[in-house]
Design a protein around this nucleic acid. Sequence first.
DNA 1: CTGCTACAGTCTCTTAAAGGAACTCAAGGA
DNA 2: TCCTTGAGTTCCTTTAAGAGACTGTAGCAG
Lengths: 145, 145
Amino acid sequence: MACSIARTLDVIGEPWSPLILRDVWVGMSRFEQLQADLGISRKVLTERLNHLVEQGVLERHPYDQRPRYEYVLTRKGLELVDLLMVMKGWGDRWLAGEAGPPVLYRHHACGKIADVELRCDHCGEPMRAGDVDLLPGPGVAGSAT
Amino acid sequence: MACSIARTLDVIGEPWSPLILRDVWVGMSRFEQLQADLGISRKVLTERLNHLVEQGVLERHPYDQRPRYEYVLTRKGLELVDLLMVMKGWGDRWLAGEAGPPVLYRHHACGKIADVELRCDHCGEPMRAGDVDLLPGPGVAGSAT
DNA sequence: CTGCTACAGTCTCTTAAAGGAACTCAAGGA
DNA sequence: TCCTTGAGTTCCTTTAAGAGACTGTAGCAG
């Protein structure tokens, strides 16, 4: 499908994949840790890790003479974590309820507890769902060239 | 799970849900349209639409005397589209290839073709996966109160 | 050197979800 | 009166997920 959303979902749209990425991001990088933390079946965890490695989102590094491996985010994978940060923001706003957010971000640049905000990479003003028109781009299905 | 990412995935993490949201966002709001455009089975489309309505992401509005309905985004749903915009950005950057992005955004505020960028809602500086520390928040599992 | 343990997976079997395609139902319209 | 359309249901087949036991490698304790 000529849709960047659908393509992105082909990479991390399967059940568990975003949670695996989150865990790897916060430092849970080994098979046993992931399995124990998520409660995912070992079979599916194997499938997901292989898929994420194939897609260039994770890399598999040995960390011992023995056959022991840990998974680390590539640059491509780290940029996917942006997505998780936006997810966290939405969940905090709409689903956290009375108790408030379970996790907070402290921004290195200003040192404050903060959340992400979407802005235009051209003018810097806020840019959200209601602030844009959609136009066909060069990669649209059926375009010339 | 006391994790806003997991909670958000409970709302739109099922297969097809993000694509349904995208279609509704761009104006494909009726059952038959969605079914034809996505190629999703009617059974699953029914389940997903019901779930999204239950979660307050979509509303079901009659548009005729006959039993005909269209689905529209609530405010909660519109904010979820932010997530889709970030997904599109990642897909454009990492998966679009030679052809380039299939869709472009024109930002109302500046009139330019642009993409979203994540910034700190406190200081306005870029805020991405590598720019934050994680701290336990008030809603963390096992917190006092 | 032998046996024990830990990590990182496979394998197999059962249960749940998705796909496909036909069927239902209400209300206009020819 | 019958036909058509939109919005689902129902039933059956195929695929994916879950649970849990099994394998294999290499260090280490005795």
